[in-house]
């Protein structure tokens, strides 16, 4: 049974672009909806401040929409990137496109939702203190920018896959590496994007209530967001190991399963720790804003709690490395 190479190419392009935009567009839509909902509530409470609230909402939605734009760009590249060797296009090409789609789809989901939390909290805060519009907006944009870094990691891996991993033919090892690296960084970026957005949201609602403590709150927010990103860095580490240090992976179905299993372990294993650290960071930033004098004590408790909640991400990393190197 021979299949026309054009059809193989089309299968890969449609599946990959479907994953990229089907998953990657959802998060930003949820996040933008949260921002719009909060802005509505705020305008209902303080109709005279509607222009500053509308501006903050639109800035928050514009910045929070960029993960879905990453997904759109990568999705269009998946559809239209030229195939280097159309005569020998096969499973490797399909797996590369699906891997890039999974990476950017899952990766932009989390950051898209995450960017919605600070935007929503900023609109709520403005309803209380409309005079603080510029300070609230600048902290919101900082928080959103940090929450987007997991989506940027995922986009980088997707672009590496698209431009450097176009191999002809069908090899189990190469297919496993492409799909495994995509799941590792994609699902691995979901939790951290979501969690660092929650941390930024907590800081924003704190600054909305107590604008004077914005310096220490910003510091706690950035530390908390940094810890939230750890699972995404584990995912990127495993993706890079697969892409650049796995040339001698066995070329049979077992090698394929090793790479995909390692990707699932470190990718999905990062979701819980990322969101969990985000919950801890949210409360830590809020508590810091409420009682700025207790910032050292709260920061210490937050960091201990986040470190413990990262432990399962470390187990997942261990299992992934065992799969790649020991078994």
């Amino acid at each position: 049974m021979e299949i026309d190479p054009h059809h193989i190419e089309l299968i890969g392009r449609l599946a990959g672009a479907g994953f990229a935009l089907g998953l990657g567009g959802v998060g930003a839509a949820i996040g933008m909806g949260m921002a719009a909902g909060s802005a509505d509530e705020g305008i209902m409470r303080q109709p005279q401040a509607q222009s500053s609230m509308l501006r903050t909402m639109l800035i928050g939605q514009a910045v929070g929409g960029s993960p879905s734009i990453f997904a759109l760009v990568v999705g269009l590249l998946i559809l239209f990137v030229p195939a280097m060797d159309l005569a020998h296009v096969g499973g490797n090409f399909i797996a590369m496109l699906v891997g890039a789609g999974l990476a950017v789809g899952f990766g932009c989901f989390g950051s898209g939702v995450g960017c919605g939390f600070p935007a929503a909290a900023a609109c709520e805060g403005l309803a209380r203190n409309p005079s603080r519009s510029s300070r609230v907006t600048s902290v919101m944009v900082i928080g959103q920018a940090v929450a987007q870094s997991p989506a940027i990691f995922a986009t980088v891996i997707a672009l590496i896959l698209l431009f450097f991993y176009q191999h002809p033919g069908t090899d189990w090892a190469m297919m496993g590496i492409c799909v495994g690296a995509g799941i590792a960084i994609g699902a691995g970026a979901l939790g951290p994007g979501w969690g660092s957005g929650m941390t930024a949201g907590g800081a924003m609602s704190g600054i909305g209530h107590w604008p004077r403590s914005h310096g220490v709150t910003l510091r706690t927010m950035l530390v908390g967001q940094g810890v939230c990103e750890t699972p995404a860095i584990f995912g990127m580490l495993v993706a890079f190991i697969m892409l650049f240090a796995m040339q001698n992976l066995q070329n049979d179905i077992v090698g394929f399963a090793k790479a995909v299993g390692a990707g699932i372990a470190v990718g999905f294993g990062g979701i819980g720790p990322g969101i969990g650290s985000g919950i801890a960071g949210k409360s830590g930033a809020e508590a810091t804003a409420t009682r700025p004098r207790l910032d050292a004590l709260v920061l210490r408790t937050m960091l201990i709690g986040q470190a413990v909640s990262q432990s399962t991400a470390i187990y997942a990393l261990i299992i992934a490395l065992v799969l790649l190197y020991v078994i």
């Binding site: 939790g191 995909v260 299993g261 999905f268 979701i271 819980g272 990322g274 969990g276 187990y315 997942a316």
Partner: peptide
Amino acid sequence: MIGAGICMGFGAIGPGIGEGYAAG
């Protein structure tokens, strides 16, 4: 191989969220 990946990957979601909730 894939089963071990699914086991650890999905098994890590609950404890991570739960511990973060306690810390918060």
